[in-house]
């Protein structure tokens, strides 16, 4: 076995973080490492945390880490922040709220920038999860960007999805309409000491009662979490949240839903890798030769239609592969 694979499986943070970096930078050799790593993955419980900016995702993650560490579980955290479309740069600021765990060897926090991905995660997130799993983390928490309302990539990666809402942000119902309603396994009403929390809870519960999901056997609970500045009640709420997550885990295992989710995840992985391994190189090579521009030009001037162009490209690239 590769020395880096060995090191990662032994939990070495530096090697793991390095490999994540190479995946982010799309270093070809990195894929080979993942291939060899893959048999060591699939054992962690993966929690997704999503919700609008300012909902308090990082603070909740921080508190969950503290709670989960009490039972000695090892934890990996992937915190995703947006890349600026203008400069390509990013400020990765989630970690700041988790810095008190920096020295805890049982906790590994890694920030990722979206680098153009739109689904709330980064392209590298899937492999970064694999790497953390190979390190032997009991739990991997993935915190999404929380900017858009299309952040549903997380269901392809996580076993339990937490959707964080805050009273008074005005967009709760919108959020629900936009699809976050369907992806939630657990709802958290954060900053629940604020005005409007009770009402939000009622609205949410009544919507959940109408939803088809409850018929499946798991009715997403609504957990109220108060002000993080009031240590006593906050800790109590977090203990409750952590129990709900555990209950959901047990439910998934007992109902067979866990295998269903693993299957869904595998399908998504095929989809993602096909895109990365087949489509991306094609697009890149066409772009490098200036052909991509020419095709676009043709389509624009109605000299060709997109389907014919796609067929022509497929002919050229994939035929060749077959002939070889």
């Amino acid at each position: 076995m590769d020395s880096i694979i060995k090191k990662i499986c032994a939990g070495d943070v530096r090697s793991a973080s390095r490999l994540i970096r190479d995946i982010e930078d799309k270093i070809p050799e990195a894929r080979a490492k993942i291939k060899r790593l893959y048999s060591h993955t699939g054992k962690s419980f993966i929690i997704g945390i999503t919700g609008a900016p300012g909902a308090g995702k990082s603070t909740l993650t921080d508190a969950l880490i503290t709670e989960l560490r009490k039972s000695n579980k090892t934890i990996g955290v992937l915190a995703v922040d947006p890349t600026s479309p203008f400069t390509g740069g990013a400020i990765l600021g989630d970690r700041i709220r988790m810095q008190s765990h920096a020295e805890d060897r049982g906790v590994f926090v890694r920030s990722l920038a979206t680098r153009g991905a739109l689904g709330g995660l980064s392209q590298a997130a899937g492999d970064a999860i694999h790497i953390m799993e190979a390190m032997g983390k009991d739990i991997v928490i993935v915190e999404t960007v929380g900017i858009g309302q299309q952040e549903i990539d997380i269901i392809n990666h996580a076993h339990s999805v937490l959707v964080i809402l805050v009273p008074g942000m005005g967009d709760e119902v919108q959020t629900m309409k936009a699809g976050l309603m369907e992806i939630a396994d657990i709802f958290v009403i954060n900053k629940a000491n604020r005005a409007g929390a009770k009402q939000l809870q009622m609205e949410l519960t009544s919507m959940l009662n109408l939803s088809s999901k409850s018929a499946e056997g798991w009715k997403p609970p609504v957990v109220m979490v108060g002000d993080a500045f009031k240590p006593e009640t906050f800790t109590e709420n977090i203990v409750k949240l952590s129990k709900k997550i555990e209950e959901h885990h047990i439910y998934l295992q007992q109902s067979g839903k866990l295998t269903e989710r693993m299957h869904r995840k595998a399908m998504a992985e095929i989809n993602d890798t096909l895109h990365a391994c087949l489509l991306e190189p094609v697009i890149k090579s066409l772009a490098a030769g200036g052909e991509l521009e020419k095709f676009a030009e043709k389509i624009k001037n109605r000299k060709a239609d997109p389907y014919s162009v796609a067929e022509e490209i497929a002919q050229r690239f994939f035929k060749k592969e077959n002939e070889k």
């Binding site: 943070v13 530096r14 973080s17 390095r18 994540i20 970096r21 400020i91 990765l92 600021g93 970690r95 700041i96 810095q99 920096a102 020295e103 590994f108 926090v109 890694r110 920030s111």
Partner: peptide, 20 residues
């Protein structure tokens, strides 16, 4: 990556490695 204020050298070094 910004770590915020009031960090010990230990926290900074650990974060630098985790973040590569």
């Amino acid at each position: 990556v910004y770590t915020g204020c009031h960090q010990t050298p230990e926290q900074i070094a650990a974060a630098a490695i985790q973040e590569d």
